[in-house]
Amino acid sequence: MALRVLVGCKRVIDYAVKVRVKPDKTGVVTDGVKHSMNPFDEIAIEEAVRLKEKKVASEVVAISCGPKQCQETLRTALAMGADRAIHVEVPEPESHTLEPLGVAKIFSKLAKDEDVGLIIVGKQAIDDDCNQTGQLTAALLDWPQATFASEITVDGDSMKVIREVDGGLETIKVNMPAVVSADLRLNEPRYATLPNIMKAKKKKIDVKTPADLGVDISPRTETLSVEDPPVRQAGSKVEDVSELVEKLKSHGFV
């Protein structure tokens, strides 16, 4: 058994932060705003660590692409149980135009360099809401993809995956190596304990650049503007159920 697992960990604005659009409409305010690991990527790390605990995986390598602060995100992954990490440094402002396609090119190059047998990523980052990186990476490597996974069972050269689809659940079988994207119910990520946070400080983070990897990350899209969504006006309160039913009737709903 020598299954090396690569896990993508994106640093995003913390899910609890109320995002504000910049007045010049070039993006959202990120300075002085709390950032943390994309919640779906925490699920991805947790799954990889569990595979290692079950002795299915031999090593868990966490990767993050972006500015220096991504190393904090990687420390979280290491504290959760990843063995080592790779930071592909993309400084600001280039990091703002880094697209999932660029990230996927980095992941696929590293997957080959590191002789990886399984890649796990979160299904979607909660900042750009793209839901692309896993699928793009699988395509670039010509590996099968098991997206929106809620249960994975590795069985030798293949893997059975239960997927969250629109109407319920779907079961697929994919050959290894493969890419998995984690959905909400795959697992419940653990909290990093203090001893593990201390241990994580001693684990290794390699720093590379896209140029080191020979990967072109120049953007293919241009964000022309970022604006506030239309505001929905709050209506009124109704006193009781009878009044609500009257309102529903007036709209022809009942």
Partner: peptide, 16 residues
């Protein structure tokens, strides 16, 4: 398209 859970709307031009 929407970003940040619909808290912002981005206008994106594709160069491909």
């Amino acid at each position: 398209r929407t970003v940040y859970a619909g808290n912002a709307i981005a206008t994106v031009k594709s160069k491909d």
